[in-house]
Design a protein around this nucleic acid. Structure first.
Length: 1048
RNA sequence: GGGGGCAUAGCUCAGCUGGUUAGAGUGCAUGCUUGACAUGCAUGAGGUCACUGGUUCGAUUCCAGUUGUCCCCACCA
């Protein structure tokens, strides 16, 4: 139970011992009067509650000018409004007000119970509380008899008063609700953490740093399931590290996403106003994009908060912010100065729809059916011709040669001859080039340097002319003669038709081929020669390859390093210019007079070469990945030497999906290595670990996409089931690098788990009479207590190690098993009888194990764990900053745990027996136990059998003489249950025989294994020993079964 | 054309550096109004760990091949 206690000294009862005693007594009746927050108003409050016994333990707000009255840890509020405001941030479902009219009105909305002193002046009647009495939300529960103030001590001698307790009618809850309802809790807790400043770490030389930079979502829209998974995984890691005592920074931010965003805004502009970006102009258009960006990045921020991401919002970054833009310029200039950026006339991927060049990474190849057209090119001055084969006949108008292989006997003589390009009267030469594959097609290739990367190379080798057949708008140029202005696909049909009509077409073969498409708009890419900026990749790739090969950067799972290396080792130069408006404008300036190119971080207005003032900045912007490549250090303030950069760089891990390794991860690696050149390699890498996760698919295993309409909005899930359920569903069973399916079943299982935890906590709280989070003395612990502590202790070790190794799904399933099966289904059940008799040891063990297990679970399910932890006895302000549990020898009671396991095994066996025989639980019977482990099966564990194995009573005996009992055999004991009328002798015999067979099988298997010399000699001693122990157990069981059979 | 993943219960998937009576969730069957939870409890059925070889004392796990399936990369006109 959490309280906010609002106390007002103006109530005038400070000197009335009887009333004060009444207040205290009432408060004591509540189980635990600890509060997360107390609003204390006035001066004599502390005197009113001497020693803090009734007063809340931790006082957060004090409204008093004299510091002498401020309890330790108090915050001073300067007005009641402020106090109310602060108090709202504290988790609370019950609020108490003790006080007079001056405080109750403000606090009442947060109250369920109000202790109120009503004053009556002789001439007035209930002046202050008429509204409360009139309200149908509140009811008067009790009212003391009327007091009259003491004329000697009271300041207002004619005052009469009564002491009243009001309760809120409907919302007064006697206990926590039966099912967990996250909606109200989550928002409140996130604000609480935020206000407390837990998300913002201190740069502390005494602590070890731990940092992650978020893969910045695009500001194009809202987050999808993939983002939810990505950020859940990061948050799990970050929260764990924070609790482990690291100074933990998670930098959030967004990416301006050049092309993607511009297209969205253009689309919006077109739909809403029927305008293009050219209609509104560059400046105005960019304003619109900024508006869009602000709207969507706010939205994204909100979504990240909803799922509980513990990002440091004070260090939020954006790829186009001034600091990051400075980093971009600086990097561009540096690479230019090093000769690693050049401007070149090259074939680039051109999207006629987006009107920009694209990098290779930004095109998607799709297999589409096409044709192979065989076309005759007449040889000048003869009746002969050469037949070429092409998939793109419309580009023939850009042909400037036909190439054959230099050693191709068929065409050797033709090299150097001239051909007439059909449908035109242009003459082109036949050239010889090794590029041509003699086996493919006709062995003759038309060379179109402006429209094909290979042809471009060939053209360069042979000094061929550049003729564009298709323009940037995707329409035919004047070179196409009569087809000028025609769309490129129309032109293909028209060209083929003309060729056919004029007799140039030899044949048509169906031929599927891969065609590049724009990853944004989906249109077919036109390879087009143009002047673009490029990054020379080879020199940058080398150290980036070495860093991974030498293990300075590690992919998890490891196999993705192959992906990365494969790509890096076959890398092409990176086209970084984009003909867009939204992005970092290229910091290059052209002199109109002398043509000099000047690259500079600052604006250039005078040509450094000729002094001309006719300077123009390049119109193009940079590829969006250029700025995101700098993300790990630009977000920490680089190029400034900030304390953040110094302390948090390199970041510790990058968490991302595999589909973005080549796009982004690789670029960050080579950019960081180049930028941090000179640092030792371990300080230069952007991150030592790359934790790769898979994609989130729908229940049928399909990729979630807009066109399929199968996308699930993570926020819908949060609304319906809560953030913790979403996080659980995403984290559970998720293994690194593998895709996962998201289904209703999964989310329901997650919801159920939430509910299970909630109810376990509810049960613990309902039975709690002690206010202590410490473990009882060893001497007081029972076998069951020691068992659960031992289990808990090993859980800590396993979960911690799993998280350390990024086995987040495995760690979670262990937590799930522990909480559900071990803690709830066994420990709570074992402990129930003790709770009924008010055993405090049991309560304290429950609290200890539950609250510490919640800590281990907190990174996965931050909200519910905080909410429950707050309501349990605890130390500290928040589970989020509590200390991560550590394994301890103090918690390890292996011998007792073993005893408990024997008991559990017998109980299980009895239940199974009874269930098989359809004996209802209501039918109780004595359980006689024959065992060699008399110290295990001693009276303290008898209640377990009564409760969990339908025993009416339990007796440990040396042997059971009669034959009227069901016999249940385990390796440590045989239980006899006299249920004579239930027993079917034949069935019983059959079952035992069957069991015997299985056991004998196991024994044989183990004996064979142990008699294998190879095994005994070569297997590790521990393994051999374990097998021996197993064998002994089976032998024990077997003798039990044999004895049982004998008596039948 | 290269590279990689996956193949385990009806379904969805775990199973880390070889030794388990091969697990979970869900579904199925049976029985439970047990003072936290039916979003629950108990019990059970259900698997030649795709196939074939190899390494090993021992292979679901490591290696090779086969089949099926999915993905990534690639400028053969």
């Amino acid at each position: 139970m959490r309280l906010i206690v609002a106390v007002d000294n103006e109530w005038g009862i400070g000197n009335k011992g009887d009333l004060l005693a009444r207040v205290r007594a009432d408060l004591r009746n509540f189980r635990r009067v600890t509060a997360d927050c107390a609003v204390i108003l006035g001066s004599n409050t502390l005197a009113t509650f001497p020693g803090g016994k009734v007063l809340p333990k931790r006082v957060n707000i004090v409204l008093h000018p004299d510091p002498a009255y401020h309890p330790e840890g108090a915050t001073v509020a300067h007005s009641l409004e402020e106090a109310v405001e602060i108090s709202r941030r504290f988790p609370s479902d019950k609020v108490f007000v003790i006080g007079g009219a001056s405080v109750y009105r403000q606090m009442l909305p947060y109250c369920d119970v109000a202790y109120i002193t009503k004053f009556k002046k002789s001439f007035e009647k209930d002046v202050y509380f008429e509204d409360l009495d009139a309200s149908d939300e509140w009811e008067l529960e009790s009212e003391s008899e009327e007091f009259v103030s003491d004329p000697e001590t009271d300041t207002e001698p004619d005052l009469k008063y009564t002491f009243c307790i009001y309760k809120r009618k409907k919302t007064m809850k006697k206990e926590l609700p039966k099912t967990y309802s996250p909606d109200e809790i989550e928002g409140r807790l996130y604000d609480f953490w935020n206000e407390k400043g837990y998300f913002t770490p201190e740069i502390d030389a005494k602590k070890k740093p731990f940092s992650i930079v978020i893969p910045p979502p695009n500001v194009t829209g809202k987050l999808h399931m993939g983002h939810a998974l990505n950020n859940t995984l990061q948050d799990i890691i970050i929260r764990t590290k924070r609790m482990q005592g690291y100074s933990t920074l998670w930098v959030p931010g967004t990416d301006h996403a050049g092309i993607a965003t511009q297209i969205k805004v253009e689309e919006n502009l077109r739909v809403e106003q029927g305008l293009t970006r050219h209609d509104v102009g560059r400046e105005k258009f960019l304003e619109m994009v900024w508006d869009w960006k602000n709207k969507y990045s706010d939205n994204i921020k909100k979504q990240l908060r909803r799922i509980g991401s513990s990002c440091d919002w004070s260090r939020e970054a954006f790829t186009m912010s001034p600091t990051l833009s400075a980093a971009v310029k600086k990097t561009f200039v540096r690479l230019w100065d090093k000769g690693l950026i050049y401007r070149g006339f090259r074939i680039a991927n051109w999207c006629p729809h987006c009107n920009t060049a694209l990098s290779d990474a930004e095109v998607e190849h799709k297999e589409i059916p096409g044709n192979f057209w065989h076309i005759r090119y007449p040889i000048k001055g003869t009746d002969e011709y050469l037949t070429i084969a092409t998939t793109r006949p419309e580009t023939m108008f850009g042909d400037t040669a036909v190439a054959v292989h230099p050693e191709d006997e068929r065409y050797k003589d033709l090299v150097g001859k001239t051909l007439i390009l059909p449908l035109t009267d242009r003459e082109i030469p036949v050239i010889a080039d090794e590029y041509v594959d003699r086996e493919f097609g006709t062995g003759c290739v038309k060379i179109t340097p402006c429209h094909d990367p290979n042809d471009f190379e060939v053209g360069a080798r042979h000094g061929l002319e550049h003729i564009f057949a298709i323009g940037e708008d995707g329409k035919m140029t004047s070179a196409a003669g009569r087809f000028e202005g025609m769309d490129r696909f129309e032109a293909r049909k028209a060209t083929v038709k003309a060729l056919e009509e004029e007799g140039y077409l030899v044949k048509v073969e169906p031929h599927g081929h891969n065609v590049a498409h724009c990853y944004r708009c989906g249109n077919v890419i036109e390879p087009l020669a143009s002047r673009q900026w490029f990054v020379k990749m080879k020199p940058l790739a080398e150290p980036a390859i070495a860093a991974v090969k030498e293990g300075h950067i590690q992919f998890i799972p490891e196999r993705f390093s192959k992906n990365y290396l494969n790509w890096m080792e076959n890398i092409h130069d990176w086209c970084i210019s984009r003909q867009l408006w939204w992005g970092h404008r290229i910091p290059a300036y052209y002199c109109d007079d002398c043509g000099e190119i000047t690259v500079s971080e600052t604006d250039v207005t005078v040509c450094p070469k000729c002094g001309s003032k006719k300077m123009r900045q390049d119109e193009d912007v940079l590829d969006t990945w250029f700025s995101s490549a700098l993300w790990p250090f630009s977000t920490l303030g680089w190029p400034e030497k900030t304390p953040e950069l110094d302390y948090y760089y390199p970041t510790n891990v990058l968490v991302t999906a595999y589909d973005i390794i080549t796009f982004w991860v690789s670029k960050m690696i080579f950019m960081a290595l180049d930028t941090m050149d000179g640092k030792p390699i371990d300080k230069a890498v952007p991150f030592p670990d790359v934790f790769i996760h898979g994609l989130v698919r729908d229940a049928q295993g399909r990729k979630m996409s807009k066109s399929l309409g199968n996308g699930i909005d993570p926020l819908d899930i949060v609304d319906k089931y809560g953030a913790d359920a979403l996080r659980f569903a995403l984290a559970t069973g998720n293994s690194p690098g593998n895709d996962m399916r998201f289904s209703d079943e999964k989310i329901e299982a997650a919801r159920n788990f939430n509910n299970k935890i909630w109810n376990a906590a509810r049960f613990v709280l309902m039975n709690l009479t002690v206010d202590d989070y410490h473990l009882p003395e060893k001497e007081q612990l029972t076998t069951a207590d020691k068992w659960i502590l031992t289990e808990y202790n090993s859980l800590i070790g396993e979960v911690t190690a799993n998280i350390e190794n990024y086995e987040l799904g495995v760690a979670l399933s262990k937590l799930y098993d522990f909480i559900w099966d071990v803690f709830c289904d066994w420990y709570i059940e074992l402990v129930k009888p003790r709770l009924q008799s008010g055993d405090e040891t049991a309560q304290r063990v429950l609290v200890f194990v539950l609250s510490n297990t919640l800590k281990l679970l907190h990174p996965y399910m931050p909200f519910i764990t905080e909410e429950i932890w707050q309501s349990l006895p605890h130390k500290g302000d928040s589970i989020m900053v509590s200390e991560w549990p550590k394994t301890s020898k103090e918690l390890d009671f292996a011998d007792d745990a073993l005893k408990m396991e024997r008991v559990i095994a017998v109980i299980r066996a009895i239940r199974a027996r009874r269930a098989e025989m359809n004996v209802p639980n209501s039918k109780k019977a004595t359980v006689y136990i024959v065992t060699d482990y008399k110290d295990t099966f001693e009276p303290s564990i008898f209640p377990f059998f009564e409760r969990l194995a339908s025993a009416s009573e339990v007796d440990v005996i040396d042997s059971y003489g009669k034959d009227d009992a069901v016999q249940v055999v385990t390796d440590s004991a045989t239980a006899y249950i006299p249920l004579a009328e239930m027993i079917d002798l034949e069935k019983e015999k059959a079952r035992l025989t069957d069991e015997r067979k299985k056991t004998v099988g196991e024994i044989e298997r183990l004996e064979k294994k142990l008699s294998n010399e190879g095994f005994v000699a070569k297997a590790p001693a521990a393994v051999v020993e374990a097998e021996r122990v197993k064998l002994e157990k089976y032998k024990d069981t077997l003798s039990g079964i044999d004895a049982a059979l004998a008596r039948l």
